[in-house]
Design a protein around this nucleic acid. Structure first.
Lengths: 194, 194, 194, 194
DNA sequence: AATGAATGAGGGTTCATTCAT
DNA sequence: TATGAATGAACCCTCATTCAT
């Protein structure tokens, strides 16, 4: 790969990060190409050198964040741990993402009215891949008789909802530390699986 | 109250209901004054006779739905039921709202992208009132030794998150009916409280 | 029809006339909504109250001009005249349009890359109707043995081309008066038909 | 001339030919520097090494085609043929250009929407030179008593109009082949001259 | 009480053009 | 020679909002 290509990819990433920041500040529709560009001291026209249109840029934001989260979890799943241990770590990882990378992780909310047919499909597919990591772990737990017999999909949704919501109320200097939250959620959610 | 005033209030309600319908269809930002008015065979200019601006109208939509939900729950809480029974009914009620009112009831969106200073405070206050209904019930359950000793705030957040998320994945004609979802969530979430 | 409706239709016509003027000055693509509006001391946003978009406005320009020309010719054709006489009058009428209403009649050139599928079809249909007026007259002349046996379509195209071109070179104060041009074209083109 | 210069001229010609192709496909305004460059696997920035700006490039396209047509006709006129024969061939040549080169040869568009002051003058001069070839032939025919006494300018305009219009209706796979059209136009237009 | 008409502000997108490399 | 990257200027279009009637 040539140097220029590398630089181009680097720039793309910068733009995506800027977009993520703005989207978190203003919401999907409130984010403007203008503001995303201004964050990087560029003009909005320049963005179109890297992305076909706003939808494309927003999709790639979504994609970047989710793919990274998926990769992290897959790495974790590859380790020789018990189902319960894996579940604990996944909960910790998800909360960590939601809290520390709040901005990026926030992306996964409510893009319904943004994406057009084709990209909507890909977004949904990506989300499905992420949630299936949880779903599969639950299924495995059921198989190993570690978790009770139940509708794994429903449990997955319940758990993901509980976890995602954290970023709505978590305050960095609030009464509850990240570690406390993780510890509580791990135990509480495990109760549902047992 | 004069007749004309009564009629005015009635009309206001009609407009809000129309707005609720459109917001549920298009989202808060996607809803246009034009479409809200068209639903009632009015012109958008007329809306400004009843509401100061779009934000005001949208706020009253959110407010109406949330207040109604609060009222419904308060009515429920006033009945002579056990804590567990009340919890079950609250879960059912919340899911029903989340599914039937979808966008308007939506508690996932960031209100700061929609509402301005003054109304933002009221929205947040309203949400706090709503969540405290759950919090108080949990506290009462703990007091009555029906629920285990625990951080009620954390549990409230966990439960609300799980419930709110439903509107992100629920499909009217999906595999799971509303009733099934309610039944499962009731039992699963109760496990956490026990 | 209410007064307001009448006024609306009047305004629409004004806008169309303004658009025609600008299109003739700048070409189809060069004409901007801004300039069309400015001509009437309006803002471009106002145009969208009367026309769905630029394409729609331009189409209606086209439509207005051609329909009027068609109506004029049809009226002429309804009169009890010989085929040759009718041909002479049609030539005179077309040249008159091309010269006097240069601006409006100019519209009929090269809109190929402007209209989208559906409206393109209507534009073509309209043009076909206009040219068929000539075509039918020629056919009738042939039938009546006043004109020689020939491919009427080819002759129509040849004649229309010759006539349309006049507006490209005609100068109001040039060597040749409108009447002279008409007189010459009538005779010259008739020679082809005979 | 140095080799590098030769190569530069060669490249310029390539670019012009590419531009001609794109202009014929998209029209003068629809042709973008991007697409013209892409056709040659270049980047648009490179075009500016060879041409001052888009207008310059487009002018040279128009110029190339028109000059070529003029040269072709002049060559033809130099041959020992009768006036009628020369007229026939000129008609054939013009139609061929109009059909094969379509947009670039296009004499219907208003050049003032495309070209600026300085180049506009040259375009008009070029067109005048082209039409005078027809004019002169007609004058010669009249002199030789092969054509009837008449206003040669008017006849030139009539003929050019008829010919130029062909590109507005000709369809490559239509009912009438290029050869048929040529044959008919030759005979029909000659009738006017006789 | 209602609305037809108008508009300002702003957003997404395109494209010719420039310039450092 | 060539180009990757950037940009200014324009353009179409949308929408909340206003105001005279």
């Amino acid at each position: 790969m040539k140097l220029s290509e590398k630089r181009s990819i680097e720039k793309k990433k910068q733009i995506i990060l800027s977009a993520v920041k703005i989207v978190n500040r203003r919401g999907y529709e409130g984010a403007t190409m203008e503001e995303i560009a201004a964050e990087l001291l560029m003009t909005k026209a320049s963005l179109y050198y890297y992305f076909r249109n706003k939808e494309d840029l927003l999709y790639q934001c979504h994609s970047l964040v989710l793919n990274q989260a998926i990769a992290d979890i897959e790495e974790l799943l590859a380790q020789p741990l018990s189902v319960e241990e894996k579940f604990f770590q996944m909960v910790a990882l998800h909360i960590d993402y939601a809290i520390e990378e709040k901005e990026t992780f926030n992306m996964i909310f409510e893009p319904k009215n943004i994406f057009s047919q084709e990209q909507l499909a890909e977004v949904i597919e990506l989300r499905k891949r992420y949630s299936s990591l949880f779903n599969n772990l639950i299924l495995k737990g059921i198989e190993e008789k570690k978790f009770r017999q139940a509708d794994s999909y429903l449990l997955t949704m319940l758990i993901l909802g509980a976890l995602n919501w954290i970023q709505q109320w978590y305050q960095p200097n609030g009464r509850l530390s990240k570690e406390e939250i993780i510890s509580h959620y791990q135990k509480d959610l495990l109760k549902i699986l047992k």
